[in-house]
Design a protein around this nucleic acid. Structure first.
Lengths: 113, 113
DNA sequence: TTAAAATATGCTAATATTCGAATATAAATA
DNA sequence: TATTTATATTCGAATATTAGCATATTTTAA
């Protein structure tokens, strides 16, 4: 299991609207930078920065095709995370059974819940 | 499906080592603040800040038990995300088939890959 | 050789995150 | 009522993230 620090880092890197959209596109197939320009409403340098960040963290990579940089997904966790992220959960988790024992275990006086 | 912006926000909130550890504990059961103090090496106010952040984003909630605040998981996506996050992936995704067609569709000159 | 296309880099200002320190609150007990 | 216990809030400094802008790089085409 990857260390907690790496897990947090991973979520932080993915946790940006533009990067989520980029990754979602890449789960469908290879895309070059100018393809992203067509559906992201941000500047090309900004797209490039996000791609570089994703690549620096090992989530994606690219190969050259003529003058195009064809980006593709590298880390297999990405589609799985995006899948969970896009699920619809109908309801919250059930409230826990009343007064479960915490480590402290002290339950002073009246209990109001 | 929750909007991309919300997805990003969610990942950003979870994407902190302390908050991941807090959430991982809460997937096992209810915990009060002083329980967290026992295994997190950070100050109580800092723990409280992280708990408040998680609560403000609807990931957790608490009920009072005497003077203890018993925190519990509220958002059902959390255990699923943590499960994916803790998976071991053996290898990277396969490199894409050579020269897939991008939207640009221009494949000038030599191809080196 | 010059120009164009595709993409990256460097810098900067604005904004957000993080943690520590001090302090506050609220309920229960002495 | 004063104290203790459990937990939260406020503030500030350090640091990180983000986007825009201008510019650079690389490769191909004219």
């Amino acid at each position: 299991m990857r260390p907690i620090g790496k897990q947090a880092e991973l979520l932080k890197v993915i946790g940006h609207p533009v990067r989520i959209r980029i990754l979602a596109e890449l789960t469908k197939g290879v895309k070059c930078v100018s393809d992203f320009e067509e559906f992201l409403e941000i500047s090309q340098p900004n797209i490039s920065q996000h791609l570089t960040l994703l690549r620096n963290h090992g989530l994606i990579d690219y190969y050259m095709d003529g003058r195009l940089r064809c980006y593709y997904l590298l880390d297999p966790i990405v589609p799985d995370l995006l899948e969970v992220l896009s699920r619809d959960y109908e309801e919250s988790l059930p409230a826990p059974a009343c007064c479960p024992v915490t480590k402290k275990g002290k339950y002073p006086g009246k209990r109001r819940h």
